[in-house]
Computed example of a mutant assay.
Amino acid sequence: MKKIFLAALILIFISCAYYNVFYNAKYYFNKGYKATQNNNSDKITTEERNNYQKAIDKSEKLIRLYPKSKYVDDALILLGKSYYYLGDMYRAKNNFNLLKENFPESKFLNEVIIWLARIAIYEKKYDIAETSLKNLKYGKLTKELMADVHSSLGRLYLNTKRFNDAVKEYTGALKYAEKDKKSGYYFTIAACYDSLQQYKEAKKYCEKSLKTANSRPERFNARFAIGELEKKLGNYDSAIKIFEKLLLDESNKLRAGRINIKIAECLELKDDVDGAIITLEDITQEFKRKKESAEAYYKLGKIFEKEKRDYEKAVFNYGKVKKEYSFSPFADS
């Protein structure tokens, strides 16, 4: 009787131990993913990297110490997703394929197919990705996975400049999406209409994105895009008001250079060339040695060349671009 009792205790202890490791892995992955959602740049932040690495370490520990536990396929999908968000597609693909090959009855199988299709999109293997996703599209999926299938197809069509098809897929994703995903889908639909030069439709979807935004970056992106679209529609005063309102928000301090460049563009388009020059010159002083000041110098060069016919000042400003920020896309213009 004592032996049975001890065996039961050991079993409970082991179960608790590997669940604890899995819980920690999931906890760190969720922290990393939250940081990813709040990241408004193309670069991975230290917070993201650290949390995804901790999720990887915990997941690998679970597989190493408890290779027969019921959480091994959970650990493999966390590994794949963590490596994906770290940009390591090779390791991401390896872990997703391990899960697919070793756990053919796993509850994560359809999700893994979606992730492998996303990697194929990243690798520009569009035919493979499209076939995989379309095969899933008509299967029995949860609402969340159905939204993922539609949005992944949308991303594929966006990458291949099939903008109308992308709109159709992201609209499909909206039917199944959870509230926290809707703003992003609306925003991407707006980007498609922008690429199609259907600016009024793009603005409408940006406004929907703003209404459903769940984070500060989402709200900023939507408002900034609305300002840009007002500019494209020729509503320069409305655009300037939107950009000036963004400048009043202290949380946009690091984006002030970018916002002011848009204001200068609007001023030039509405024939207030002197106002544009003043705004651009302010940027060169306030954001020295930054990409914003380099762009401001380039735009000043163009204004002095095309509008003022002051070629000496044009040459001076063009010459400052590369010195100001050598990595600027305008450096060799």
Rank of each mutant, 00 (worst) to 15 (best):
K3F: 03
F5W: 12
A7Q: 11
L9C: 06
Y19K: 01
V21Q: 02
Y27P: 06
F29I: 08
K34W: 14
Q37Y: 14
N38F: 05
N39S: 07
N39R: 00
N40A: 08
S41C: 13
T46S: 10
T46D: 14
E48W: 00
E48F: 03
S59V: 06
I63R: 01
I63C: 04
Y66K: 00
Y71N: 03
Y71M: 05
V72P: 00
D73N: 04
D73I: 00
D73L: 01
D74P: 06
L78F: 13
G80K: 00
G80Q: 01
D88S: 03
M89K: 08
Y90F: 15
A92M: 02
K93S: 08
F96E: 01
L99Y: 02
L99I: 08
E105H: 14
L109S: 11
E111H: 07
E111C: 05
W115Q: 03
R118H: 04
A120V: 06
I121L: 04
Y122A: 14
Y122T: 15
D127A: 08
D127I: 11
S132D: 11
S132F: 02
L133V: 06
N135W: 09
L136Y: 01
T142F: 07
T142W: 09
E144V: 13
V149K: 00
H150V: 05
R155K: 15
L156H: 01
L158W: 13
T160V: 07
R162D: 14
D165A: 04
V167E: 04
V167M: 01
K168Y: 06
T171V: 08
G172W: 09
A173S: 10
A173F: 03
L174Y: 05
A177M: 09
D180R: 08
D180I: 15
D180L: 05
S183Q: 02
G184V: 06
Y185N: 03
Y185D: 03
A190D: 00
A190I: 00
D194R: 01
Y199W: 10
K200S: 10
A202L: 03
K204E: 12
Y205I: 02
C206K: 00
E207V: 10
K208A: 08
S209E: 04
S209P: 13
A213M: 03
N214M: 11
N214H: 13
S215E: 09
R219W: 09
R219S: 07
I226F: 03
E228D: 13
E228K: 08
E230R: 04
E230M: 09
G234V: 04
N235D: 10
S238H: 14
A239L: 07
A239N: 07
K241V: 12
K245F: 12
L247H: 03
D249G: 01
E250Q: 11
A256T: 15
I263M: 01
I263C: 01
I263P: 11
A264W: 05
E265S: 10
E265V: 10
C266D: 07
K270Q: 09
D274M: 13
I277C: 02
I278G: 09
I278E: 15
L280F: 11
E281G: 05
I283D: 02
R289E: 15
K290A: 09
A294L: 02
E295S: 09
A296Q: 02
Y297V: 02
Y297S: 02
Y297T: 03
Y297F: 07
G301V: 01
G301M: 00
I303V: 12
K308N: 10
K308T: 06
D310N: 11
A314E: 13
F316A: 08
N317R: 03
Y318F: 11
K320R: 09
K323G: 14
K323D: 15
F327S: 15
S333C: 14
